[in-house]
Amino acid sequence: MINHEQLSLFEERQVMYMPRIGIVGGGPVSEVPDLHPYHGEKMIWIGADRGNLTLINQGIIPDYAVGDFDSISEKDMKKISDHVENIDKVPREKDKTDLELAIDRALSLGTDSVYLFGVTGGRLDHEIINIQLLYQLHSSGAEGAVINKGNWLELKTPGKYTIHHDFNYPYISFVPLSLNVRGLTLDGFYYPLTNKTVPFGSSLCISNQLIKKIGTFSFTDGILLLIKSRDV
């Protein structure tokens, strides 16, 4: 099961009556963790294109299938059709990626917590935009996380946040997604900071660690990517 620390950064925004939603993209299967611990949280599952096969092959039936399915063979498409009741098939020529369409579907269901799997590895252009889609989720009032076998990523805007020690992810990094992140303060970390401006492209906040069970980080301006990692 998912432990408390892994979910702690979502707790402040979760409403008990709103569903958690897991979206599985069509990225390399080697990047996708065992999904059953998250399935135990009774999430709604959405498969984006080949992500439906990843879910089905792990024994989890998607609640919704979204995509143009242009990379799916007839045999695999039949497999998806045989298992999934709700299929949103869209034209190949479109203005949004299959993952963004899956996010649109998730938001239409009413949620404040979305987990993205199968969105890293493979093509770098897809991976970069998939991570940036966390901003769209945040702007829509939902908190999102990109999760693969060794990393947990979240996007943060200015504020103060609590972070719990998690033995699954001992390394914690902060990466600016704006030209500058201003006023960054880290408390309870091996490398603390106080009111620091961190420019885009700086490696200053890579591979930090908590020295307490609970730490805090805050900043006053910019967009920040929080990355919790482990060696795999």
Rank of each mutant, 00 (worst) to 15 (best):
L9S: 14
D76F: 07
D231F: 04
G183H: 04
E41H: 05
T120D: 05
C205S: 01
L179I: 00
I172M: 06
G27K: 06
L124P: 03
V15R: 05
T157N: 08
N86K: 13
I2S: 07
Y115P: 02
S73P: 14
G215F: 05
D112N: 15
G59C: 07
I2H: 02
G40Q: 15
Y169P: 08
E85L: 13
L153G: 00
K228Q: 15
T194I: 10
V232C: 11
I87T: 11
L186Y: 01
G22M: 08
G188M: 03
T194S: 14
L116F: 01
K89G: 00
T197V: 12
S8H: 10
P62L: 09
K228F: 02
K94C: 09
A48D: 10
G47Q: 07
L204Q: 11
H4Q: 08
I129A: 11
N208T: 04
F174E: 05
G122Y: 04
Y38P: 03
V29R: 10
I163S: 12
K75R: 12
G201K: 03
I2K: 08
R50I: 01
P91A: 05
I163Y: 03
L101I: 10
T197P: 05
L177E: 01
H138T: 12
T162H: 06
A142P: 01
L134E: 09
I61Y: 03
I172D: 01
G183R: 06
S71L: 06
L177W: 06
E93T: 06
D98H: 09
H83C: 15
L137A: 00
N52Q: 03
S202H: 02
G51P: 10
L133M: 12
D104A: 06
I60F: 06
K228A: 10
G26K: 04
S178F: 00
S218A: 14
G22P: 02
P91I: 07
D63T: 15
R50W: 00
R105V: 11
A65Y: 04
E93W: 02
H39E: 14
D82T: 13
N208H: 02
D231K: 13
T54M: 10
E143C: 09
I87G: 13
L99P: 02
R13C: 05
L116E: 01
E11I: 04
D221W: 08
Q209Y: 09
P28V: 04
L35H: 06
I56W: 02
S202V: 08
S139G: 06
L53V: 09
V146E: 04
E31R: 15
L124W: 13
Q209A: 15
G144Y: 12
